[in-house]
Design a protein around this nucleic acid. Structure first.
Lengths: 146, 146
DNA sequence: CCCGATCGTTGGCATCGCCAACAAGTGGGT
DNA sequence: ACCCACTTGTTGGCGATGCCAACGATCGGG
């Protein structure tokens, strides 16, 4: 019997490993974004606009997995900073059409660099091949979950 | 020139891929834990106690990366549920010694199963070899930043 | 004996992800 | 033309998370 009050078995690493790692990544990204007065939502929105072009707020929410109410607040902030423009859709009076401004594009490229550095520091201990493999697996997981 | 108002380049996936994936994992874990009336902090604390044995609250915080104030709240909850015991350290009147109860151990094993299922569903699209590789890489990353 | 460090605790803050409700508008069916 | 289901933007709220500042009590070293 290997019981007794001794320490314990090695915890089923995989379960919590995920939690630990995601928390770590989360923190790095948030720190990096916070340093340039941005938040995750800002990047989600700008990136979605850059990739797929102008859209209504609801559509933007769908692209980036944001709730409609959070899109409102985020667009408010980005608009106030001059990074996006919000104007009524002539063809559908319910919708607003959101567009990135040149200033917004510059900001996005800035955020890209900042996030790249965060990722660089997070994945520092992995080789180039490993990083590619990791990215590939993450893509697989994301695609599988829609 | 393939410019014009057309869509855009493929966003530097790696940067945001991390964010997307961690968000996903985060949500799965939180859902799974919420379904059994638990939170991430609960598991962090119970797991730390199981692995390294009884400890003061500050020590528990260090083990699991929790803030002292969050340890207070979490121990309150776990104590009220009968999963841990908190009693003064006879050798140091500043400290409380926190211990897992048998009921707490049972709960922890329950949480282990629940988290295992969450991980199972998250990593579903990966082969066994890939999962091992992923876990290995995550461990590498965590140790490096440890 | 004094001073710096540690401990538990309280209270606060910003972000995040989500949900409910509402008014305005749209589109399809009849 | 009317009704009805649905979408959209907006407001307001909730709980979890990860932090930080301050406090009073206590401890340990000089």
């Amino acid at each position: 019997m290997e019981t007794s009050g001794a320490p314990r078995r090695l915890r089923g690493a995989a379960s919590w490993l995920l939690g630990q790692a995601t928390t770590h990544a989360h923190r790095l990204v948030s720190e990096a974004l916070g340093a340039v007065d941005a938040r995750r939502y800002h990047y989600s929105l700008l990136a979605a606009l850059d990739e797929f072009g102008p859209a209504s707020q609801a559509e933007l929410g769908r692209r980036g997995g944001l709730d409609r109410s959070d899109v409102v607040a985020t667009v408010n902030e980005l608009e106030q900073k001059g990074f996006v423009e919000r104007r009524p859709d002539p063809g559908d009076k319910r919708r607003n059409i959101v567009t990135v401004t040149p200033s917004g594009m510059a900001h996005l490229r800035h955020l890209d660099r900042v996030l790249g550095q965060a990722q660089e520091s997070l994945l520092a201990p992995l080789s180039e091949a490993e990083r590619e493999e990791l990215v590939r697996m993450l893509n697989t997981v994301l695609e599988h979950h829609g």
